[in-house]
């Protein structure tokens, strides 16, 4: 069972169709069971019963999650493989000591994968769909997987299966979700 965490500004918002349902559809199409929870429902409960956890993205104008970082403190104790997408990556970075920084990207851009990983494979360039006004710096315990220090595209925790990608894999890069689900 994979848990999808909805990071949108409110539970059951109109944005959910855009940032959570596409991820759910892709995973279900690949044969995985999923459960969706809004982040506000997890604030005090460590989500332990899942095989994987994905923190989904939000609308360009939706940065409420950044004011609620304490709601995600469970991430630090989490030993379940975790993937943060866009806003989800920013949350992971922030929880581990990185800084959420202004950084806008809208549309398809080339992504340079610089380090081999189980999630993104070997170093090469791919094209990815971006939709964000903020990025995040690489925390101390993390490795840069793609992009560069001033524009982090992907990172991974040095010892744990915790990943972040700033682009949206549901567009043109669905294989990333399959790879994560199969880790």
């Amino acid at each position: 069972m994979i848990l999808l965490v909805d990071l949108c500004y409110e539970k059951e918002s109109l944005s959910m169709y855009e940032f959570v349902h596409p991820i759910a559809d892709i995973l279900m199409h690949s044969g995985f069971s999923i459960e969706i929870r809004h982040y506000s429902e997890l604030a005090r409960h460590m989500p332990e019963k899942y095989d994987k956890i994905i923190l989904c993205g939000t609308a360009l104008k939706d940065n409420y999650y950044a004011k609620q970082i304490s709601s995600f403190s469970w991430i630090k104790c989490c030993r379940t493989p975790l993937l943060g997408i866009c806003a989800g990556m920013q949350v992971i970075g922030s929880v581990f000591g990185g800084r959420i920084v202004p950084q806008q990207a809208i549309g398809l851009e080339t992504i340079e994968i610089i380090r081999e990983s189980a999630l993104l494979g070997e170093p090469r360039t791919i094209e990815g769909y971006h939709l964000h006004n903020f990025g995040v710096t690489v925390p101390d315990d993390f490795l840069l997987l793609a992009g560069y220090d001033e524009h982090v595209e992907a990172f991974k925790h040095k010892n744990l299966s915790i990943y972040g990608i700033i682009f949206h894999p549901e567009v043109r890069n669905r294989w990333i979700l399959d790879r994560f689900a199969n880790l």
Binding site: S15, Y17, E18, P22, D25, A59, K61
Partner: peptide, 13 residues
């Protein structure tokens, strides 16, 4: 224009 943008059919099957 400082407006929200919603695409509720995005990537739908």
């Amino acid at each position: 224009l400082d407006l929200w943008c919603f695409n509720p059919l995005w990537q739908i099957n």
